[in-house]
Amino acid sequence: MSIQHFRVALIPFFAAFCLPVFAHPETLVKVKDAEDQLGARVGYIELDLNSGKILESFRPEERFPMMSTFKVLLCGAVLSRVDAGQEQLGRRIHYSQNDLVEYSPVTEKHLTDGMTVRELCSAAITMSDNTAANLLLTTIGGPKELTAFLHNMGDHVTRLDRWEPELNEAIPNDERDTTMPAAMATTLRKLLTGELLTLASRQQLIDWMEADKVAGPLLRSALPAGWFIADKSGAGERGSRGIIAALGPDGKPSRIVVIYTTGSQATMDERNRQIAEIGASLIKHW
């Protein structure tokens, strides 16, 4: 067993022997301040990774656009098919120029040779490549099948209805392509620590998230040296922004954090800054 596999296998073990965790309302004060600064709703939840206990939450059962955070769930569904012998990570998928959609920095470079399922998941999570996500959605049967996968996990809230990039439209009061912070946090925890996926697939999923290259201005910008984070960000229309993450000190994750916002007129930089400040408060009061 590799060191990384050992780390993920012992996530519940280490967490069980940690000192009790206590909620700190100071972080919620910052979440509410972010709402004021952005002029928009902000949803927040913080779960203990081992027990699933909610440590703090704000608007945990209000719907927010998922945006690209759905790509972690998508690759979880792909990995479940791999575990069941219905898919192979090494299978190569070929596609054409007509398949390319807006923001496809990886797939646009491989029109000639195609990409493997493993490479597509890596591109979808680490670079948020939209064509990679659409190609992977095709392998599982489309958005409705991802929703069905989530329902089978016990998540009857999260739903995907459309493809990239239309799913980022974020129309107010439109339930399409949305989740709730509580539902997303619980589902992410199941994917990373539950028995739904094999140990190898859980490790692969967290490795992809740990290698995320496009979430630097968010929670990662607030992390002290030595902290662990595996995350996936999302951005959408109407001032929408979000991030889902597993993080913790001492090089291992111990909490799940989900943050979503929508309806702001603020710039992307300002949305990023507010999420980073929430992260800084979380870490300060850990």
Rank of each mutant, 00 (worst) to 15 (best):
V29P: 04
A132K: 00
P165D: 10
A200F: 13
T198R: 10
I243A: 05
K71T: 02
G242E: 01
F58A: 10
G114S: 07
E164I: 00
I171H: 15
W208D: 06
A182P: 08
T261Y: 12
L192C: 06
S57V: 11
V258R: 00
Y103R: 04
A222K: 11
R118L: 10
I229E: 00
G154Q: 07
A84I: 14
T179H: 00
E56S: 10
R162D: 06
R202H: 13
V257K: 00
K109F: 08
P65M: 00
G248H: 04
S51G: 07
V31R: 01
P25C: 14
L188F: 06
S104I: 03
Q203T: 06
D250T: 06
T198Y: 07
L79Y: 03
M268H: 11
A148F: 07
L100W: 05
E195R: 13
R271P: 09
A235M: 10
V157C: 08
T139D: 15
I140P: 01
A148D: 10
S57P: 01
H110A: 14
M127A: 10
S57K: 11
T267C: 11
E270I: 06
T147E: 06
P172R: 08
E119T: 05
V31L: 08
T147L: 09
P143S: 13
A77H: 06
G90R: 12
I275C: 05
A276W: 09
D155I: 01
E237F: 11
D231P: 04
Q274D: 05
T138L: 15
L49F: 11
T158L: 01
L197H: 05
Q97L: 10
I278M: 11
P143H: 08
D231H: 05
R255S: 04
V106Y: 15
A170W: 06
K109P: 07
N152L: 14
M67I: 09
L167A: 10
I54V: 15
L205H: 00
P60L: 14
G251W: 09
R81L: 08
T116K: 15
C75M: 06
A211T: 10
S240P: 01
R238H: 14
D48W: 02
F149T: 13
A34Q: 12
F149S: 14
E145G: 11
S264I: 05
E166R: 13
G141P: 04
G226H: 08
R189L: 08
L137I: 13
G239C: 04
G141I: 05
K190E: 15
I278Y: 01
E61V: 11
M66A: 11
E108L: 15
G251T: 12
S240F: 03
N130A: 02
A124K: 01
I275D: 02
L191A: 07
P217D: 14
L89V: 15
R176E: 06
V82G: 06
G52M: 06
L137W: 04
A84N: 13
V82S: 09
G76W: 05
A235D: 03
E61D: 10
N130Q: 04
L79Q: 03
G154K: 11
F70C: 13
R273Y: 07
P60N: 13
G39C: 10
A132R: 00
V31S: 04
W163K: 06
T193S: 13
T138G: 14
E164C: 01
V78S: 03
D177P: 02
E237Y: 09
I229N: 00
N50C: 10
R255C: 05
G39T: 07
I259Y: 05
H156A: 08
A40V: 14
L205D: 00
R189I: 10
T262K: 11
A183T: 12
L137C: 07
R220N: 02
E35K: 03
E56F: 04
T262Q: 10
L135F: 13
T187A: 11
L188A: 06
E87A: 15
